[in-house]
């Protein structure tokens, strides 16, 4: 059967619709013109300026520290949660409930989560000054939405492993610790790494949660871009956006590869 060529054309049109704006930004990041959209020649200038702008460097540092710390915490908690969900003999009904709870953060609008965090941190602030808006509250905020993504990725890996191997390990005299070290963790590693990369990407790109939980000294790149755009989009922002986009693409591709294995 020959496929209608229209299907191919519409697929290409869809892709164009998705990626043309990004492509435009990437092209403009190499444009010599400072204001406006006319092309007046190729330049690396904006990238060079980017790396000599202390405000941007500071924001980049914050972004990576935040992404790294929140990812480590979320990966540990999410992995444990997935193992508990999948391996602990829950009564059937609470298993279903737990699974729904796990999905909830994925489908809840970020803004709802963000507002909830603002309220919660406001209350905690009465107890400890630790909850003043800043890097710490941002880490907590990011961890809350990252956990679900890590847990879901690890859990699908656990599901595909099945129960045979842990029975085989027990039958072969393995203690639980030995089983975890020699069998479970090595086999889960691709899932854990993929989940961590996904979490890292999400943290890197997050705007809404960061916006509501950030303090004066914890500006991140997405927040900085937002603030700059309000003052007018400059080619520096195009350059920055292009870099962040490329990094995200790389992480997603890597995570994809790991889950497929």
């Amino acid at each position: 059967m020959r496929l209608n060529p229209l299907i191919g054309i519409s697929a290409i049109a869809t892709l164009a619709f998705l990626y043309l704006p990004m492509l435009a930004v990437a092209v403009l990041s190499f444009n010599k013109t400072r204001y406006g959209l006319t092309w007046s020649g190729f330049t690396w200038d904006w990238y060079v300026r980017l790396f000599s702008n202390p405000e941007i460097l500071e924001a980049a540092r914050n972004t990576f520290v935040l992404a790294l710390l929140s990812t480590v915490i979320a990966t540990v908690l999410g992995t444990l949660f997935a193992i508990a969900l999948e391996r602990y003999p829950w009564p059937r009904r609470s298993q279903g409930l737990l699974e729904n709870i796990l999905y909830l953060p994925v489908v809840t609008p970020d803004i709802i989560f963000a507002v909830a965090l603002v309220v919660a941190f406001g209350a905690f602030r009465m107890v400890s000054s630790l909850f003043e808006p800043g890097l710490f509250t941002m880490i907590l905020g990011h961890v809350t939405f990252q956990i679900a993504f890590v847990a879901l990725t690890v859990r699908s890996r656990l599901k595909s492993l099945g129960h045979d191997l842990d029975e085989a390990a027990r039958d072969l005299y393995a203690s639980y610790g030995y089983y975890v070290r020699r069998v479970l963790l090595p086999l889960l590693t691709p899932g854990i790494v993929a989940g961590a990369m996904l979490a890292f990407t999400l943290s890197l790109d997050d705007f809404v949660i960061s916006f509501f939980t950030a303090g004066p000294t914890s500006q991140t790149l997405p927040l900085l871009i937002y603030a700059s755009v309000r003052r007018g989009v400059t080619p520096e922002i195009h350059a920055l956006s292009t870099l962040i986009f490329l990094l995200t693409v790389l992480l997603v591709l890597a995570s994809e590869r790991l889950t497929r294995r």
Binding site: E167, A168, R170, D171, L172, Y173, S175, R182, V183, L187
Partner: peptide, 20 residues
Amino acid sequence: LPANQRPVNTVFQSYALFPH
């Protein structure tokens, strides 16, 4: 006695070999 303390071993239907 739990499985890992019994002097008994099993050949599983799926073989359950450790794939890694």
